[in-house]
Write a protein that binds this DNA or RNA. Structure first.
Length: 259
DNA sequence: GTTGAGCGTT
């Protein structure tokens, strides 16, 4: 049990932040503490975790008290195999508040720096030279956090419990449901002109691309898409959309063991 | 139960 990260950042005024990458998803601060503590005085260790699942993201932040110790730890622990995986230790570049970080250390406002800022801007490159934006082209874990951080935060990924079904959430799933009310939509027809090419009668080309190669080989559909179900009459006790009612409650007894 | 480039919390 580590007291790290239990009460937020203790003090980042005189501490050097080290970034540990390539660590296993099971590595905790307690596992890195004895490892980093051997090379210096570890002030705090923080490992970002997923807010949804709570699992480690695969990297940790180790704060040292002195730069020499941090530097030593970087050279000594960088490349060390932890939990069967080689970790990468380096100085943190980006701070939590986007503060100026120099060699892992947060450089607070320097009175001398203010004057050195020069009121005259000879060129934008002077202040823009630190635009070290590298190609963060990830494989496929790109939508793991960025989406929830920049977009999901303002929106809501927890309120989605209402309807996580794309078929239902969109309102209009297919023609079976859009054809029926489309007639009564005469009054709303005014704004129906938004999609003239895709109006009823002309289904999407991609959907009818493989009318024969559908997901139904020959037997009954796995989801029960029998003609009767399409008609709006589901003989089976399933949702009106043909989806079993258990989308939001997979298992109330899921969080028991520790995986 | 999975995933692997990256930069952080009360």
């Amino acid at each position: 049990m580590s007291h790290f990260g239990r009460s937020g950042p203790p003090d980042i005024s005189d501490t050097y932040s080290l970034l540990v990458l390539n660590i296993t998803f099971r590595t905790t601060a307690d596992d890195l503490f004895p490892l980093f503590h051997k090379y210096g005085d570890v002030v705090d260790i923080f490992i970002p975790k997923d807010r949804r699942t709570g699992d480690s993201r695969g990297f940790a932040f180790v704060r040292y008290k002195y730069a020499d110790e941090a530097q030593k730890a970087v050279e000594r622990l960088d490349g060390r195999v932890v939990d069967g995986r080689e970790i990468t230790v380096q100085f943190a570049k980006y701070g939590p508040n986007a503060e100026r970080i120099h060699k892992g250390r947060i450089v607070e406002s320097d009175p001398r720096s203010k004057r050195s800022r020069s009121p005259r801007r000879r060129h934008r490159d002077d202040d823009y030279k630190e635009k070290d934006y590298r190609r963060r082209s990830r494989s496929r874990s790109y939508d793991r956090y960025e989406r929830d951080r920049y977009r999901g935060r303002d929106k809501d990924y927890r309120r989605r419990s209402r309807s996580a079904s794309p078929d239902k959430g969109r309102g209009r799933g297919r023609y079976d449901d859009d054809d029926r009310p489309i007639r009564s939509r005469s009054r709303s027809r005014s704004r129906s002109v938004e999609s003239p090419p895709r109006a009823r009668g002309s289904p999407s080309p991609r959907r009818s691309r493989s009318p024969r190669k559908s997901a139904s080989p020959r037997k009954k559909s796995p989801r029960g898409e029998s003609p009767e179900t399409r008609n709006g009459h589901s003989p089976t006790p399933v949702s009106p959309r043909g989806r079993p009612y258990a989308s939001r409650s997979p298992s109330p007894r899921k969080s028991d063991g520790d995986a």
